[in-house]
């Protein structure tokens, strides 16, 4: 065991994969000389050289599209976008090209590329640097979407993402980067589509993504003292989605809350609630609940931002509504 930050865990995954496979090439803004805006690529330029760790100009559509071309011609590009909000700048290449080329080619071509970028609010970064893009991209078939929780999860899932032969969107939570975690010296790739039971409980299921897993764990500690046992499911991936694990849990607890930091409207919570209602409606003791960002852009002032962000307290409050 060792103590490292979430950003270091990501850096270790990149380093270990690059060491293993020469076809892995990284492109992105500020990933080379300064080791990344969030320090996820520190030391990699020195170790692998500037053809494999390429500082790009501010041309998101251009270098994401280059990643697609590199993936089609035998490389395994890992592209860093400084903020997930910039997916919108590169949207044509992400959604019309990367996600669809395999399908449009009738399976002739694979696009084994990974786009890494941070999601989440909490840094007074305002409306264009605080969004969480998982649900928006999930609307379009063709991209696997990863929402890792802890440092260990991020490391294991990133290895799987890089080795996957399909496009993967890997969404890191920017408020996690500097947090320290105890992790094993060696972390194996973690398979996609298999959720993790982060905490077992019998009274209510909380299906959570990204840092909402840890926030839910914090809430669950407090709730346990009041006699409410939460079962927390770390979804790990949105596409593929492990509905089986959610359904098995809800069959036991009869109650479901989905905790995801993206905006509530048309979000992951709505998707999972519909899937559960479709499948096991009669097991539900109550309607499915959601903890998510309200449907307003993220504001700048901490006085405005923090009250909006889904927190451990909000998860706690939401759970309490089921046990009046």
């Amino acid at each position: 065991m060792k103590e490292i930050t979430y950003a270091q865990a990501i850096c270790e995954a990149l380093d270990e994969e690059m060491e293993r496979d020469d076809n892995i090439v990284m492109l992105g803004e500020d990933i080379g000389f300064i080791g990344g805006n969030f320090k996820c690529t520190v030391g990699l330029l020195e170790k692998y050289g500037d053809l494999r760790v390429k500082d790009t100009p501010i041309s998101e559509q251009g270098f994401v599209g280059m990643g697609v071309g590199m993936a089609l011609t035998g490389l395994r590009p890992v592209i860093e976008l400084m903020f997930s909000d910039f997916l919108l700048v590169a949207a044509d290449q992400v959604i019309n090209q990367m996600a669809k080329i395999r399908y449009m080619s009738g399976g002739q071509a694979n696009v084994p590329m990974t786009i890494r970028c941070p999601i989440g609010a909490g840094r007074s970064s305002a409306a264009q640097h605080s969004q969480s893009m998982q649900a928006m991209v999930a609307q379009f078939p063709g991209t696997k979407i990863v929402v890792p929780s802890t440092a260990r999860e991020a490391k294991g899932l990133l290895k799987t993402a890089i080795r996957d032969d399909d496009p993967v969107l890997f969404l890191e939570h920017k408020m996690e980067y500097n947090k320290k975690y105890q992790i094993d010296d060696d972390v194996e790739p973690i398979p996609f589509g298999k959720a993790r039971i982060a905490r077992e409980g019998k009274d209510i299921t909380i299906a959570a993504t990204s840092s909402m897993v840890m926030k839910s764990e914090e809430a669950a500690e407090k709730l346990a003292k009041e006699g409410i046992e939460c079962e927390i499911i770390d979804l790990r991936t949105i596409v593929p989605l492990d509905t089986e694990t959610i359904i098995e849990s809800v069959k036991k607890t009869g109650k479901l809350i989905v905790a995801d930091e993206a905006h509530e409207r048309c979000g992951i919570g709505a998707e999972i609630a519909a899937a559960v209602a479709d499948d096991i409606f009669y097991y539900l003791d109550a309607p499915c609940g959601r903890v998510a960002n309200p449907n307003v852009p993220l504001p700048f002032s901490p006085a405005l931002e923090f009250p909006l962000i889904p927190s451990a307290d909000k998860v706690y409050d939401k759970v309490k509504t089921y046990f009046k």
Partner: peptide, 24 residues
């Protein structure tokens, strides 16, 4: 590497192929 339905959509893709060539 494909015909393409988006005007200009293929330009960075071909450029990426050129990056692969340079890398290899």
């Amino acid at each position: 590497l494909g015909a393409n339905g988006i005007v200009g959509g293929e330009i960075p893709i071909a450029t990426g192929a050129a990056y692969t060539i340079k890398y290899k």
